[in-house]
Design a protein around this nucleic acid. Structure first.
Length: 666
DNA sequence: TGCGGCGGCGCC
DNA sequence: AAAGGGCGCCGCCGCA
């Protein structure tokens, strides 16, 4: 039977920032209206709670629908279950019929939000901007906790709700549908999100208190040293200006200004970020730069403050379910439009500081805090507590597996180049890839082999090497870096050839629409009828990477003319006055990178489909929460799943050695 | 006062 | 000819 589109408008005293799960399950949450459109017949319904029970024909249409589509369907599903079924006797709906049009946008490499997606696609039905005002008016309580119930505003809200349904319908029909596999993977993500991950709320609260005190202390110290010119460590502009001013006379100040100067997209800017601060401290210590002591103190304070984890602990407390302390809804299927990898929102699980305390240390620090002891190096200590604040339930442990050098393996495998087998053989034999790389470059330095391996695979050169090297505290003369890049490329011709193949493949695909063009183990095809012409990279498992509004252009450069492919890039947000969506240009290295990261994502999804009890994943890492007495068995299972390559990845060597953890860690 | 822009930071 | 890119969140900055 025909699909239906639906959209709820709601109100609640629970802030939406507490997450969709806490919001929907809160006692104060109520439905303002429900808009529904039948995708087949075009029939529309608008229901208010004051109308009484859902009309029979509406209930019938929803129950009979193959798919129930909604933009951010998680939200509508939760409202249906927690408010509709419980308070208004809505019928129960099977979970697997829900279909998220926001996820559908993302697999089409479009922005996630309805507003942005409709803008990007240019569909006729646009999201109604009056909505934001109405939400403020009707959905958010007044200061005294009461709600506005103005009938005319409520009627307007209904119009807005139906308008959103029409925009969603129009949008969903203007782009390709999710494949059954994508839909199944979205449902699987829903399961992981519903399971959630437990937070040690007690620890988070203690950490929060300590962090807030320390933040205040840092602010006071900054205010005193600078005489109020800087009052918080987060005031970047004020800090820069003060530092330059303090460095006095023009000559010295010019020296400082040079240190703070960076080029971003060719534009000269001043910055005093972590790397630059570190550089300033080093040069001051070595005498290369004269910096007054009070300035050094300020830089030190900003360093400390920047490790702050106040917000993240705050977010943990805010998002944790009040009953079971689990944070739900953290993962976004295909959140990264360009690679179809997962993203994480709310409590961002994908960027927690890796350098962290073990379970025992974390418990000891928790004890110290509970007894009001002072901590050493407070901010640093606290930020190292972030991961261990994620805990398994009583009687359970985490089983954590991560793939070893996943991108370093996928890239050579993906090329399908016989020359790349040498590299794959190194992985198969268990030898040290960094030693091998160094040897192939005829450089007797494992460290250079490592940085080169990590930095140069995607056509990066001197810049990429230096950025990576700096992260490891290595600085080499430019001439030497140029030589390293050259040697790495010579030793890894398969990579250089693949970049060129990628670039040629996309151009060829653009020239011959609807024709598959091979590219290593992938293919490219240009579909003219999809979103203003979409270039698709088809991965070995059938996953599609899309480049919407792709254009083949001939550009004149100072080195001569050339063809290149550009496309509309969802992750770039257009300026308020922008007429067209921002675009990006493809070149060999970036194509190779997109494909590689995407295939790593395919492997992750392939594994997740076979596993129960997944509570977390971070691109190359899977975390299970299992009863302690079956942990050993789960560890074996996880390793087998992660190391067994799918049918479509024959010859790809995979390595993972899971471990058991009492708290989340590195 | 509200809001978009942007710098900064963390991860893979 | 050369090119690192993929994310999300926080909070200040500066404009309307």
């Amino acid at each position: 039977m025909p699909n239906i589109i639906l959209d709820f408008e709601t109100r609640s005293r629970m802030p939406i920032a507490a997450g969709a799960y806490n919001y929907a399950s809160d006692a104060s949450t109520d439905i303002l209206c429900l808009g529904v459109i039948c995708e087949g017949t075009g029939n529309e319904w608008l229901w208010y709670p004051s109308d009484g029970p859902l009309p029979y024909d509406l209930t019938a249409a929803i129950q009979a629908a193959d798919l129930i589509k909604a933009h951010n369907a998680t939200f509508d599903k939760l409202i249906w279950e927690f408010v509709g079924v419980d308070d208004y006797a809505f019928p129960e709906l099977p979970a697997n019929r829900w279909y998220c049009t926001s996820a559908q946008c993302r697999v089409n490499a479009l922005p996630s939000s309805l507003d942005n997606a409709t803008r990007a696609v240019g569909v006729k039905m646009r999201k109604d901007r009056r909505g934001a005002q109405l939400i403020k008016l009707l959905s958010i309580p007044n200061d005294d906790g009461t709600f506005n119930t103005d009938p005319s505003a409520l009627k307007e809200m209904g119009d807005y709700c139906l308008q959103d349904c029409r925009a969603t319908l129009d949008l969903s029909q203007s782009i390709r549908q999710m494949t059954p596999q994508e839909h199944a993977d979205w449902l699987l993500t829903e399961d992981v999100n519903e399971r959630g991950a437990k937070v040690d709320v007690e620890l988070a609260r203690l950490a929060l208190d300590y962090a807030e005190d320390e933040k205040l202390a840092i602010a006071e110290a900054l205010t005193e040293i600078t005489g109020g010119a800087i009052t918080k460590h987060t005031q970047a502009v004020r800090a820069r200006n003060w530092v330059i001013e303090q460095c006095g006379g023009d000559d010295i100040a010019a020296g400082i200004v040079a240190e703070l100067t960076v080029f971003k997209d060719g534009v000269k800017k001043l910055s005093m970020d972590k790397a630059i601060r570190s550089n300033l401290l080093l040069k001051a210590a070595s005498g290369d730069l004269t910096i007054p002591d009070n300035v050094l103190d300020v830089i030190e304070l900003i360093d400390q403050g920047s490790k702050s984890s106040v917000s993240k602990f705050q977010r943990m407390v805010e998002l944790a379910d009040p009953d079971d302390h689990r944070v739900r809804g953290a993962f976004v299927f295909a959140g990264a439009g360009q690679t179809q990898r997962f993203a994480s929102r709310g409590l961002q699980m994908h960027n927690m500081r890796r350098d962290c305390w073990g379970a025992e240390e974390a418990i000891a620090i928790k004890q110290d805090m509970a007894e009001n002891y002072e901590l050493d190096n407070v901010m640093n200590t606290l930020s190292k507590l972030l991961r261990p604040t994620i805990i398994p339930d009583t009687g359970k442990v985490f089983v954590v597996g991560d793939w070893s050098a996943i991108e370093g393996r996928v890239l050579p495998w993906l090329t399908n180049d016989p020359d790349a087998e040498v590299v794959l053989d190194v992985f198969r034999s268990g030898e040290d890839i960094y030693m091998h790389t160094a040897a192939a470059m005829r450089i007797d330095d494992r460290f250079i082999g490592k940085v080169a391996t990590l930095a140069l695979g995607y056509q990066g050169a001197v810049g990429a090497f230096n950025v990576m090297a700096k992260a490891y505290g290595l600085a080499l003369p430019e001439a030497q870096v140029i030589a390293i890049v050259k040697k790495w490329r010579n030793a890894n011709q398969w990579a250089v050839n693949f970049w060129r193949e990628c670039e040629r493949a996309v151009i060829k695909a653009m020239r011959k629409p609807a024709t598959y063009v091979p590219c290593g183990r992938c293919q490219f095809i240009f579909i003219e009828g999809l979103i203003g012409g979409t270039l698709i990279g088809v991965l070995p498992d059938g996953t599609m990477l899309q480049y919407p509004r792709a254009k083949l252009e001939y550009v004149e450069t100072q080195w001569g003319g050339k063809h290149q492919v550009s496309y509309m890039k969802a992750s770039l947000t257009p300026k308020a006055d922008a007429k067209a969506w921002p675009r990006a240009t493809l070149y060999g290295g970036i194509i190779a990178e997109n494909l590689t990261q995407a295939v790593a994502g395919c492997l992750l999804r392939y594994s997740l489909r076979q596993l129960d009890d997944v509570v977390l994943h971070v691109h190359d890492e899977i975390v299970l929460e299992v009863p302690s007495d079956i942990a050993d068995h789960s560890m074996t299972t996880l390793q087998t799943v992660m190391e067994t390559e799918p049918d479509w990845a024959e010859g790809l060597p995979l390595k993972a050695e899971p471990v058991i953890m009492e708290r989340y860690g590195k």
